[in-house]
Write a protein that binds this DNA or RNA. Structure first.
Length: 288
DNA sequence: CGATGCCCCTGAGAGC
DNA sequence: TGCTCTCAGGGGCATC
């Protein structure tokens, strides 16, 4: 679920509770998500203060005052839930009940003014993960160093996109899904950006013209900005840290609209096709 | 090296 | 109602 707009929404939801807060009472309820939790994970978080929260691609980075970075990836179904009720604060140590079998991580964040919040992390499919690295380890890690540009920054422009597309035999769907080119796009927003740019997912990257590249850059930036403004897309289980749902899913033009009329009213009907095992949706009439 | 297919995991929804 | 099948926002790894 979580692509850049959803991760950004989560990061913004965490920010008022985590930035400047001291962590304590950290607990993990199973040894691993996608990967094993780091050794001494809870011990390293407890007592640390969060200096700064940052989103990079689909990762949330919490820079701690202990020369460590707490990295979280939400995978497909990872979800942070903030509980700042007095009741929650009295129950850090409650036994995880069967209906909470996907509650894997908890911590308590205390701000300098004494206000506290418990932060819970749920992840049914367990494709998410948490890491604890020094800044050096993070910045030199291959997976991190190979991330492409942030799509909402000025680093993404038509010139950059053309440089990534030049000579490549893959199609635009695969090009935009690859995190090493543009980081943070996922299945939904790639489909929507291609629609906005009137480009077909099977369009060969190498055939992209300067004009098309410019349209695609604008499509990417606009769809991501619009989605962030809407609080992300809540398809099945995405929710903000407050439990609030995003509403960008109501603005999808093609995603999950197979068989429905193209919103451009050009007589086209949205089709679904599988690329690399993921569904693509597009209007064959206006996307070329 | 580039491109593609498969796999990790659980749950929801469709169809019978 | 209850079973079985398909599919889901991500990304890493094996293979050609």
């Amino acid at each position: 679920m979580p692509e850049l707009p959803e991760v950004e929404t989560v990061k913004r939801g965490l920010d008022p509770y985590l930035t400047g807060a001291r962590l304590s009472d950290t607990r993990i309820h199973r040894a691993n998500l996608r990967y094993a939790f780091p050794d001494d994970f809870t011990k390293c978080l407890d007592g640390a203060t969060v200096l700064r929260l940052e989103r990079r691609a689909k990762y949330i980075l919490a820079h701690l005052d202990t020369q460590a970075v707490w990295v979280t990836h939400l995978g497909m179904t990872g979800r942070f839930q903030i509980d700042h009720s007095a009741d929650a604060l009295g129950h850090y140590y409650h036994q995880v009940t069967p209906d909470e079998k996907h509650l894997h991580f908890q911590t308590v964040a205390t701000k300098p003014d004494g206000s506290r919040a418990r932060i819970d992390f749920y992840d049914p499919r367990r494709f998410g993960f948490m890491l604890l690295l020094t800044p050096d380890e993070l910045y030199s890690a291959k997976w991190y160093a190979s991330l492409g540009v942030e799509p909402l920054s000025d680093d993404l422009d038509a010139h950059y996109l053309l440089s990534k597309a030049k000579g490549r035999t893959l199609n635009l769907k695969a090009l935009l899904m690859a995190q090493g080119g543009i980081a943070g796009l996922g299945n939904i927003y790639v489909c929507e950006a291609l629609y906005r740019a009137r480009l077909h997912p099977d369009h060969r990257a190498a055939d992209l013209t300067a004009k098309q590249a410019q349209a695609l850059v604008e499509g990417i930036k606009s769809v991501l900005s619009d989605a962030i403004a809407a609080g992300g897309s809540s398809i099945s289980d995405f929710a903000a840290t407050s439990g609030e749902l995003g509403y960008f899913q109501h603005r999808f033009c093609v995603y999950d609209r197979k068989g429905k009329a193209c919103l451009r009213e050009d007589g086209g009907v949205v089709e679904r096709k599988v690329h690399q095992g993921r569904s693509s949706f597009f209007c064959p009439k206006c996307q070329k």
